[in-house]
Design a protein around this nucleic acid. Structure first.
Lengths: 121, 121
DNA sequence: TCAATAGTTCAACGATTCATGAGTAGTTGA
DNA sequence: TCAACTACTCATGAATCGTTGAACTATTGA
């Protein structure tokens, strides 16, 4: 993933409704959900929903396909994984503390030897 | 990490200059860099830099401490790791495809059996 | 062909964010 | 105390984003 792509993906996710849409779509996999179903669960107007869906689409985080009179949206899980990979490896250069906290957040503690004594770095 | 916190962290990262600052600070760990050093490497005006640094600070992604006449900024790596953990586990519910693509992006291929045949979901 | 259904697009408005430059505040050394 | 240095705050104008409602397009079935 390139920086431009990552930036637009981050901007797309930095919105409550859109994050909620992604949260809904990921477990549905390729089957996805229709715009109407998403709208019913997300509770926003049709035009607003359409706006957010196209923002996610343009950011490359979801795909759209028509099925009769419905439009089905599905999460592009590989792209989402790619974004997380980018944050972890490109932006944080595979930093051990970041990786450790990414893997394990139970209790908010980090478990790498070198960071056991750190306050909140 | 809570949703509100994650949203502000995502919004903070969704900007080229701020992402660049994080990229600079993570490898420096607790030592961090002074505002002046960051400004020299990031190439933006002092006031703009200050604005971006305070945005990152408010989002909980960096810390500031004074050292003489300098102000030293350091990445809060645990928070950054927490954000990535949130994306992976809360938003994507630990989805296997997302996790696999997050771990391995070589060639852009995913390696879970169930997703080998998927196009780009 | 026509009505109903499912979604999208558009213009308009308000709110927020961004970049700039001027001015201000804290720290140091003479 | 004062000048130099380092960094922040504030006011401004421009640009972007988010929301709304009305109008539009595409599809289906009678």
């Amino acid at each position: 993933m390139e920086q431009t792509q990552a930036l637009s993906a981050l901007a797309a996710l930095a919105h409550e409704t859109r994050l909620q849409i992604v949260r809904l779509l990921v477990p549905c996999g390729q089957d996805g959900l229709s715009a109407g179903e998403i709208g019913a669960r997300v509770d926003c107007s049709a035009s607003r929903l359409s706006f957010h869906l196209s923002a996610l689409d343009q950011a490359g985080l979801i795909t759209a396909r028509r099925d009769g009179r419905r439009v089905i949206y599905a999460a592009k899980r590989r792209q989402i994984g790619g974004l997380i990979h980018y944050l972890l490896n490109d932006c944080c250069a595979g930093d051990q503390t970041v990786s450790a906290c990414c893997r394990d957040q139970t209790g908010g503690a980090c478990h790498t030897a070198s960071d056991a004594a750190l306050n909140d770095s």
